[in-house]
Design a protein around this nucleic acid. Structure first.
Length: 425
RNA sequence: GCGAGCAUAGCUCAACCUGGUCAGAGCACUUGACUGUGGAUCAAGGGGUUGCGGGUUCAAAUCCCGCUGCUCGCCCCA
């Protein structure tokens, strides 16, 4: 048997209502904030990710699905989408669209990692980016508010927002030097990973969860205390904006985003019941990424949210099951069969959900089937009905039956759909 | 890439530790009791080379080894 490849999975019809809820709620909420949907290709030139995400990051160094196409082009399945959106911003000269362009996206992304709870090789992200001439912290605050509002709307209550600033090209190098000096004495006694990070990416040492390393890390200087004056002011302003908006957050001095392009604002939202991978959403500012990709100077901030993780945090009752059929047609005999098909077509044109069996079966089985699919009504078309020119309509909830002409039946069923039910479709 | 756990019917699991009643139950499915009327009940039935390969033994779902797959964790990230 050929099965899905490791780290991928089918989303079956029964699970789709939850996916649709998450996706449609995102569209509804983001729209209100002026974000518009963009769809970028699922694969891009490898160079795009290598340059933006960073050659030395795990994502680029060992997690990308990279291949060469028939013309020799180096291509990669997208491991994230910020790079693509910024590429699109440059390619379509979006700076002419206005001072800040707000975009959101959703779709599959790919990373070659060992699957575990809340982590897959084909996974889904929903994200948004605000790119433009200004780095006004009010944009950061609004974006964070939008994510919070979205999660609130979905009923994800058990969550926490963590905030930090990772500085900029001016202040971060100096901080990294200071950090290395501070840890120089301790590093031989720290874990193997930290010793490696010390050389490759010292900031990530702050992320270490090894218990024995904690005392050293706690004594290390905090990034937020060594920001340049511009970054410090930006961070202060962001905090005031969040306070003013009534958004609760916690400063996480050790929150470091893994991707090279991040500057200043970094945030993460974690949820309960997720297992080891408890980050539902993460994001931050990436001033300078446009220039890095050969575009004009631009400031940007964005976030990405893991749909599979969100689904784990989503309340059970959040999504309702698919709609039940409006009508099940039970027909007996070949003549009735043609009447059944014609009736079904008329009602389906009106938007009703109509089912029938293709095989001839005994009435008892047909009624059982109508019950099993949770049909609201069943209609019986047999010899008696054909002779009388009236079908027997049965209300499956009450068991009440009445004889109706085809026109009367269609009229009744179409009217039976409440206006609110049809409006939500 | 590393570590641990698990793999029996479509699904959830039992039998495994303490090898030896034919590999079982519940749910689901099909059929009948009930010739044209569902949900309940009762009965019958279909469906398994116990993930794959090898070994030990008179005898393996059960013990041992290898492989594959899945799950969880490390790493990293959404």
């Amino acid at each position: 048997m050929i099965q899905t490849v490791r780290g991928t999975f089918d989303i079956l019809p029964d699970e789709l209502p939850r996916w649709r809820l998450v996706e449609e709620t995102a569209r509804a909420v983001f729209r209100c904030y002026g974000y518009r949907e963009i769809r970028t290709p699922i694969f891009e030139r490898t160079e795009l990710f290598a340059r933006s995400v960073g050659e030395e990051t795990d994502i680029v160094a060992k997690e990308m699905y990279t291949f060469t196409d028939r013309s020799g082009e180096r291509l990669s399945l997208r491991p994230e989408s910020t790079a693509s959106v910024v590429r699109a911003y440059i390619q379509h000269k979006m700076w002419t669209w206005g001072s800040v362009v707000k975009l959101f996206y959703m779709g599959p992304h790919f990373r070659y990692e060992r699957p575990q709870k809340g982590r897959f090789r084909q996974f889904h992200q929903i994200g948004a980016e605000a790119i433009g001439h200004t780095d006004d912290p009010a944009i950061d605050a609004e974006l964070i508010e939008m994510v919070e509002e979205y999660l609130e709307r979905l009923g994800v209550r058990e969550r926490a927002l963590f905030l930090n600033s990772v500085g900029c090209a001016q202040c971060r190098p100096a901080y990294v030097r200071r950090l290395k000096e501070a840890l120089a004495g301790a590093i031989p006694r720290m874990c193997e990973n930290c010793r490696r990070r010390y050389e490759v990416n010292p900031l990530r040492i702050l992320d270490c969860k090894v218990e024995d390393d904690q005392p050293f890390i706690e004594r290390a200087p905090a990034l937020v205390d060594h920001l340049c004056s511009a970054c410090a002011a930006h961070f202060e302003a962001l905090r005031r904006h969040l306070d003013a908006r009534g958004i609760a957050y916690r400063i996480a001095p050790r929150l470091v985003r893994g991707l090279d392009y991040y500057t200043r604002t970094a945030f993460e939202i974690t949820g309960a019941r997720l297992g080891a991978q408890n980050a539902i959403a993460g994001g931050g500012r990436y001033d300078g990424l446009s220039e890095l990709l050969g575009g004009p100077p631009a400031k940007g901030i964005g976030f990405a949210l893991g749909v599979e993780r969100l689904l784990l945090a989503l309340p059970e009752e959040a999504a309702v099951a698919d709609e039940a059929p409006d009508l099940y047609i039970a027909y007996l005999g070949e003549a009735a069969r043609q009447h059944a098909f014609r009736l079904a077509r008329r009602l389906r044109r009106e938007g009703l959900i109509v089912l029938y069996d293709f095989e001839e079966r005994r009435l008892r089985r047909l009624m059982a089937q109508a019950d099993r699919v949770r049909a609201r009504y069943a209609v019986l078309i047999g010899e008696d009905e054909l002779a009388a020119g009236r079908y027997t309509l049965r209300d499956m909830r009450t068991g009440a039956q009445e004889a109706l002409s085809e026109d009367a039946l269609v009229q009744k069923l179409v009217a039976s759909r409440s206006p609110s039910a049809s409006a939500s479709r």
